Simulated scan of single mutants.
Amino acid sequence: MITVNAASIAKVVQTRALHPERIGELAARRQQPHGLVGQTGRLLLVAADHPARGALRAGDNPVAMGDRAELLARMVRALDRPGVDGVLGTADIIEDLLLLGALEGKVVIGSMNRGGLAGTVFEIDDRFTGYDAPAIAAAGYQGGKMLFRIDPQDPSTVATMQSCAQAVDQLAAHSIMAMVEPFISRRDESGRIRNDLTTEAVIRSATVSAGLASTSAYTWLKLPVVDNMEAVLAATTLPVVLLGGEVAPDQGAQFAAWSKALASPSVRGMVVGRTLLFPPDGDVESAVDATVELMTA
């Protein structure tokens, strides 16, 4: 098992400073996964692209994801568990994991648009500041993920929509999965963007995002678990992965909702970040194992 400690972090820093070419070499030599089926028949991915958007909160800790060594240690522990198939992250996270040797045989999804920084006036104008399709293809990764928030009151939405459509086309040209995470979003009285998690809103966001680009052949949707998921999943024939979402105080209720949604054959897996990496009791392994059990039920 890979150990993340002061010595291994120091080695990562030294390699980055003195031998940055090693990152490309490791990506090229990396053992590839066996498609997108997953060990349980469905994909379970650990997400850690939140820090690049300035979203560091997990539970009650506003900067839980701000300690990189701690975050990497938790990710490595999660990736080591049976049933965990890979990771979704920005280049800095993925390259740290490459240097630690944690991505052999794993599905890797590169996060593409992180320009909509949390809490900013330009948050909806979610520029593509992360991976692009050629970089994902060149590194031998399995897909690219994009966040697509639709604010009916913000004209910047259309720029993000167009950029997402172009990214879907570019990924499809490389025969690589495009993972689109859509929301209907609005600013509240304080100006903070809130996602509308009503059933109708999620259906609308799913149908709009499914229609992006000139082909949907390689498009998967990443959707939140909401009330009446049956209606949400009936809105599309595209493969769906469930969004784990925020750390819930009642983890049992959260797992029960996931289990119900996983009963649908449309659901091809889950992408879970803070809920697995920062569970209320701190036990990463138990949180991961409980999720894997849901996938196989």
Rank of each mutant, 00 (worst) to 15 (best):
V4T: 07
S8K: 04
I9P: 08
P20C: 10
E25A: 05
E25P: 00
A27M: 12
R29W: 14
Q31T: 15
Q32M: 15
L36Q: 11
V37P: 00
L43R: 11
L43D: 06
L45C: 11
R57S: 12
A58H: 08
P62Y: 00
P62W: 00
V63K: 00
R77G: 00
D80T: 09
D80V: 04
D80C: 06
R81C: 14
G86H: 10
V87W: 05
V87T: 08
G89A: 02
D96E: 11
L98I: 10
G101R: 07
L103Q: 00
G116M: 02
T120E: 01
V121T: 11
V121H: 07
T129M: 02
Y131N: 04
Y131K: 05
D132Q: 10
A133E: 15
P134C: 05
I136H: 12
Q142P: 08
G144V: 11
L147C: 06
I150E: 08
D151C: 10
T157A: 00
M161I: 13
L171G: 02
M177G: 07
V180P: 09
P182Y: 11
I184M: 14
S190T: 15
R192C: 03
N195S: 06
D196L: 02
L197E: 15
A201E: 15
V202E: 14
S205K: 10
V208F: 07
A210E: 07
T215P: 04
L221F: 02
L223A: 03
L223G: 01
V226L: 06
D227T: 03
E230Y: 04
A231C: 05
A234N: 07
P239I: 06
L242G: 10
L243D: 11
G245W: 02
E246D: 08
A248H: 06
D250N: 14
Q251K: 09
G252N: 10
G252D: 12
Q254W: 14
F255I: 09
L262P: 05
A263S: 11
V267R: 01
V267A: 01
T275P: 03
T275Q: 12
L276I: 08
F278C: 04
G282A: 12
V284H: 09
E285S: 14
E293V: 09
A297Q: 15
